[in-house]
């Protein structure tokens, strides 16, 4: 169940995208979110889709895995599509059945919004699938560093994030184990009424919290013993390296933006 989720996980690899600096990828994704909004007609959306497929190709992640892992998001996309389809009342009517009317503009909007959604989700997934969580954290810490001036605890936040990420697999395993242990004791989390299911979650959640607290306590001790006393006076082992290819990818994105502006109506 949990193991099929792909969003937010890392697939090791050595593609061009894998080797980009995490900062470049982060900046890329943030800029891309803005760039997506430039598109407003068939040509520009087609260019966007084309560009996205290009990036997928470059990341060498199999399309099948992407689609399979993104199933939960697909439902959301379909829902948004239907919403636009039925509630936009502009342009010619292209379909009518009883009280149901579908307008041309509704169909267009539905498709556009879905594409927008789709390319955004795909590109963010590619970011997380091709970048180790620790690099993302490092990149965030470096990019946010200027905010220290305004008393934002950037180092602490980054450490927190990196530790949380490091414990996600551990806690997933733990969830799986406790769930199985309770199922072996006859607890049933998959059938029954809403109330029954809620009740069945308690024997899962309590041990999970207890164990998470225990782990947190142990971890804090281990960190203290190894001399951790906050960000002050610390040196950094991780060094991010910005290379030409990182500049290139950002430039490519800017070129995409210019093309989109040119073709937009």
């Amino acid at each position: 169940m949990l193991e099929k989720m792909i969003f937010g996980r890392f697939i090791p690899g050595d593609s061009f995208i894998h080797r980009l600096d995490a900062r470049a990828k982060l900046i890329f994704v943030f800029l891309f979110i803005a760039v997506v909004f430039i598109a407003n007609n068939w040509i520009t959306y087609a260019i966007l889709v084309l560009f996205t497929f290009l990036i997928i190709r470059m990341s060498r992640i199999r399309l099948y895995f992407l689609v399979n892992g993104l199933k939960p998001v697909v439902i959301l996309i379909i829902f948004t599509f239907l919403l636009h389809l039925f509630f936009t009342r502009e342009g010619a009517i292209i379909f009518e059945w009883k009280f149901l009317r579908i307008y041309e503009e509704g169909l267009r909007q539905g498709i556009f919004i879905s594409i927008r959604f789709f390319v955004l989700v795909i590109l963010t997934s590619i970011l997380t699938l091709t970048t180790t969580p620790i690099s993302i954290t490092d990149a965030l810490e470096t990019l946010l560093n200027p905010l220290k001036k305004w008393k934002l605890p950037v180092h602490e936040l980054a450490l927190m994030m990196s530790i949380s990420l490091r414990f996600i697999p551990t806690l997933m395993d733990e969830t799986d184990k406790i769930m199985k242990a309770q199922m072996a004791r006859g607890s049933d989390m998959t059938t029954g009424s809403m109330k029954e299911r809620m009740n069945a979650i308690v024997p899962l959640l309590i041990p999970l919290f207890v164990s998470a607290f225990k782990r947190a306590e142990d971890l804090a001790t281990a960190m203290e013993v190894r001399g951790y006393k906050g960000g002050e006076g610390r040196t950094r082992y991780r060094k991010l390296e910005w290379a030409t290819k990182d500049t290139v990818i950002i430039v490519i994105l800017l070129i995409l933006a210019i093309i989109l502006v040119y073709f937009r109506s």
Binding site: R166, D218, M223, R234
Partner: peptide, 21 residues
Amino acid sequence: DNQFVGATVQDDVAFALENNG
């Protein structure tokens, strides 16, 4: 599991070194 601070092996080994500057 509960004393592995770093995201990878080398980060974990470096942790005490980082703390001590």
